[in-house]
Nucleic acid binder design. Structure first.
Length: 531
RNA sequence: GCGCUCGUAGCUCAGCUGGAUAGAGCACUGGUUUGCGGUACCAGCGGUCACAUGUUCGAAUCAUGUCGGGCGCACCA
């Protein structure tokens, strides 16, 4: 809709025109402050320019009026245009808001180490990434969702050790001395039991078999992770194992040429020359590669696969890591501006106003699966997709268990269900409703229709700004408009029943499409559940 | 100390590529159709947009500085 308007104005004025939503709907559907920017070059007051511009519009199919107000140019869309657009949207419902972008994008997210189940922080990045993925695909981008599995290095050794400790203590009932760092959590005991079944008790005692144990266990851990993700409708196309990349290390090292050098028996990357704080070690004196080495090989492999654009979602505590990876990408001969790193900030949880208690059995970490069990996948996804990903977030679980308007996900679902219920109750057929024209609606109905038709713009904006909360904010507002309209206006039995039902269908289409882009299924009706 | 980031209503947060009177939800207070799901709706209360200076016709938005919070500053991932 906005695209059509922009295109028309661009043609008319010969330049990009800033289109905004008027503060007050009574001004019109769209507005532009273009007269302000023209006033300098034309040496005339914005108000006069606006008046002249407004007068220059002929009759056309899109606008019913163009009015100058205090220097702004306000546009009102014609009923005809809105009505036809609505009919088109309803007839092509699965295409609503779709576009034909063609870039190929590699989106890497979650990438949590295969050393334990996902916690609430991972969940946030996962939901953020998956929502972007859905938005991007809706816009036509060809996006690959990828998970990078850090299955090499210290953390894997630590996993083996941790399973042994847990098994020896809880299964073999031995006294164990805990080292400084090891993992904890209920899943370790489960893994230890499975290991004993598969390999026998010795696997828990033999220090030399830690690696073997860990390499077996990490696959089981990945199964847990994949299940946790699947339970919230998050699925990956590809998994890349760090361990599979190291064969390539010498070649990649050579490829970086001047970007790497030897000093003190180690190999360094000259990242400082690319804006990093200092140069970094990539291979230690004992020839073991550092974590960064793995990421360099991985990013090389990514770029060799030849995507148009690369997006990584990282925990915000890794933000200092961005310059060195970008430096490496440049040394490898690629354009680092094609790599965008988005950050997902920390999450703290409350329950009824009190800090959420972390269970010892979970290893003092709030597990994603526990929260999904408590409030459901829909609520979890909604919470994380409704706040800017890169600012710290605190939320109260209790708020999302309520079944009234204070709970946004409930509120939106209820709006959708209300429409479905009333459509089911009406005697009119789908065909009859679709045939109705949306012309001649009153002001409130017109406003509701316009709001519902804005979804495509919201999707585009949410994706291109990487701010997925714009979608949830929109859905909340649209649901609010619907509830209000419903309260004010009798639908069934009214003269305009067909029109109003059609209007409601457009609203339902937007709500349903928007929710599905958030990975949430729109409900046909609300069922009151006991807490 | 250095880097990044945030500071908007009592609370949780929008708004930030500069634009019309700064918004929403929660909380609190008071209301609502003898009608389609009241699981809803309406109204009220509440702000020096952390502070200062600058740029501009115009600043919550941009720049610089100050103060305050978070994160990072590994040959750990």
């Amino acid at each position: 809709m906005k695209q059509r308007v922009s295109a028309l104005l661009r043609e008319k004025f010969g330049r990009e025109v800033v289109l905004e939503k008027p503060k007050d709907r009574s001004f019109g559907h769209f507005a532009t402050p273009i007269a302000f920017s023209l006033s300098k070059e034309l040496r005339k007051s914005p108000m006069i320019i606006a008046e002249e511009l407004a007068a220059s519009f002929d009759e056309n199919e899109i606008f019913t009026s163009v009015e100058p107000v205090k220097g702004y140019l306000n546009f009102r869309l014609s009923e005809n245009f809105l009505s036809e657009y609505s009919t088109w949207a309803l007839q092509n419902s699965s295409d609503f808001g779709k576009q034909e972008k063609s870039e190929r994008i590699l989106l890497e997210f979650v990438s949590a180490n295969p050393t334990g189940p996902l916690h609430i922080g991972h969940a946030r990045g996962a939901v953020y990434g998956d929502t972007l993925l859905r938005l991007g695909r809706h816009l036509g981008y060809d996006i690959t969702a990828e998970y990078y599995v850090n299955d090499a290095g210290n953390q894997i050794d630590l996993l083996g050790l941790s399973i042994q400790l847990e098994g020896r203590r809880n299964i073999l009932h031995e006294d164990v001395v805990y080292p400084e760092s090891y993992y904890r959590g209920e899943y370790l005991e489960t893994l230890a039991r499975e290991a004993v079944e598969k390999f026998g008790n010795e696997i828990l005692r033999d220090v030399s078999r830690q690696k073997e144990l860990a390499l077996w266990a990490k696959d089981s851990v990945m199964d847990i992770i994949v299940k946790d993700l699947g339970d919230t409708n998050i699925f990956f196309d590809t998994f890349v194992n760090e361990s599979s990349l190291y064969d390539d290390w010498q070649r990649v090292l050579a490829k970086m040429g001047e970007g790497v050098y030897e000093k003190e028996g180690k190999i360094w990357i000259a990242s400082e020359s690319k804006g990093d704080e200092k140069d970094r070690v990539v291979v230690r004196e004992d020839h073991r590669p550092t974590y960064l080495a793995g990421d360099i090989v991985y990013h090389n492999q990514k770029f060799e696969r030849g995507y148009d654009y690369y997006i990584n979602i990282w925990g915000a505590d890794h933000h200092g890591y961005i310059p060195r990876v970008k430096a490496a990408v440049e040394f490898l001969g690629y354009d680092s501006s094609k790599l965008e790193v988005l950050l997902s900030q920390m999450v703290s949880l409350l329950k009824d106003g009190e800090p959420y208690k972390m269970s010892k059995r979970a290893g003092n970490v709030i597990l994603m699966s526990d929260i999904v069990q408590e409030i459901g996948s829909d609520a979890l996804r909604f919470i994380f997709a409704s706040k800017k990903s890169d600012t710290a977030l605190e939320f109260d679980l209790a708020e999302f268990k309520k079944q009234d308007s204070s709970n946004p996900i409930f509120y939106i679902q209820y709006a959708h269900a209300r429409i479905k219920t009333i459509l089911a109750k009406s005697d009119m057929s789908q065909e009859e409703i679709l045939r109705a024209s949306l012309k001649g609606l009153n002001e409130n109905a017109d406003a509701l229709l316009f709001d519902a038709l804005l979804l495509p713009e919201i999707i585009e904006d949410a994706f291109s700004s990487r701010q997925v909360q714009k979608l949830s904010d929109y859905l909340k507002a649209l649901a609010g408009s619907l509830h209000k309209f419903y309260y004010d206006c009798r639908i069934l039995g009214s003269e305009d029943e067909a029109k109003l039902l059609k209007l409601f269908m457009v609203v339902a289409l937007s709500l349903k499409t928007g929710l599905s882009l958030m990975g949430i299924e729109a409900k046909e009706r609300m069922v009151k559940t006991e807490d």
